[in-house]
């Protein structure tokens, strides 16, 4: 009798555990980084709406657009009948409106690298695949560690990552600062973020003068990336010409001003590995005499 009870209890437990949790089938993402996370987690086929800026992976280009991360169009979101919306944790407004509309959502941060990992796990948990999400995150972290392990010993080049500036000029420069995930990517790739010494903000504005004083060894300019490959090369050449006047800067003197070749730089998501690999290649390239 006791055995029988135990068997029944065990079977019931199995049935309960096997019962799949109600998984969301229609997911809306409000930013490129969360869209990439969803696809990296294998949830891509459940994504029914993405932000206006989403371009990667290519299949998102045919999906309905719901506006931008801070100003999404709730009407469009509601029309897509989502059972999960991924939003920014900075958008309390949207969170309140989704709650009022009784639409489930998960709010995530993407400022630091740890935020990116946490975000992916939380999205996975909300989608009922937390274990898988943890595995994906562990894989990303392991690949980043492998890049870090390959950094040669010796002095670390001072790196400046330019995230924004006025087109065709070196004004209004916004750089990746100490508080951003890009700061960590530079560190993993074997460099030192030259801005972290002067500002703790994620994305500080810098004057050209302060950049001349900081004297970076490597400059990565992510502005004016262009749409096509030919377009991009032309723009890259133009970006590099802008810097040529400033031969006192080590990076200019040694031909180590580079235009970014991947939009992964802008997107705190699973492609941080790709961005770091590219960055490591640039930083660890031997100096031109």
């Amino acid at each position: 009798m006791r055995t029988f009870t135990m068997v029944v209890v065990a079977m019931a437990t199995c049935v309960l555990l096997a019962q799949p949790r109600e998984q969301p089938a229609r997911i809306v993402s409000t930013s490129p980084s969360t869209t990439e996370m969803l696809f990296a987690l294998g949830l891509g086929d459940r994504v029914v709406g993405v932000s206006s800026f989403c371009r990667y992976p290519p299949q998102v280009t045919s999906l309905p657009r719901v506006g931008t991360i801070m100003r999404p169009d709730l009407e469009r979101i509601v029309t897509l009948r989502p059972d999960l919306v991924v939003i920014s944790d900075r958008n309390a407004d949207l969170a309140g409106r989704l709650a009022a509309a009784q639409i489930p959502y998960v709010a995530v941060a993407t400022t630091t690298l740890a935020d990116v990992s946490t975000a992916m796990v939380r999205i996975g948990a909300a989608a009922g695949i937390e274990a898988h999400a943890r595995a994906v995150v562990a894989d990303i972290e392991e690949r980043l560690e492998r890049i870090r392990a390959h950094v040669p010993s010796g002095p670390r080049p001072k790196v400046l990552l330019i995230m924004g500036r006025a087109p065709d000029s070196l004004t209004g420069i916004v750089a990746a600062g100490a508080g951003s995930y890009l700061n960590e990517l530079v560190d993993i790739a074997g460099g030192t973020n030259v801005v972290s010494a002067v500002s703790g903000l994620p994305y500080p504005q810098l004057s050209l003068e302060s950049i001349l004083r900081l004297d970076p060894d490597v400059i990565v300019d992510t502005v004016d990336m262009g749409a096509s490959e030919i377009d991009r090369q032309a723009r890259n050449a133009a970006s590099l010409r802008l810097w040529q006047r400033f031969q006192t800067v080590s990076a200019v003197r040694h031909g180590r001003v580079r235009a970014a070749e991947t939009d992964a730089f802008f997107i705190p998501g699973p492609r941080v590995v790709e961005a770091t690999e590219w960055l490591a290649g640039v930083i660890q390239q031997p100096e031109r005499p």
Binding site: L74, E75, V78, T79, R81, R97, A100, A101, I103
Partner: peptide, 9 residues
């Protein structure tokens, strides 16, 4: 969804 759009948006 209609309710949300008309009444909440």
């Amino acid at each position: 969804a209609d309710q949300v759009i008309v009444w909440l948006v």
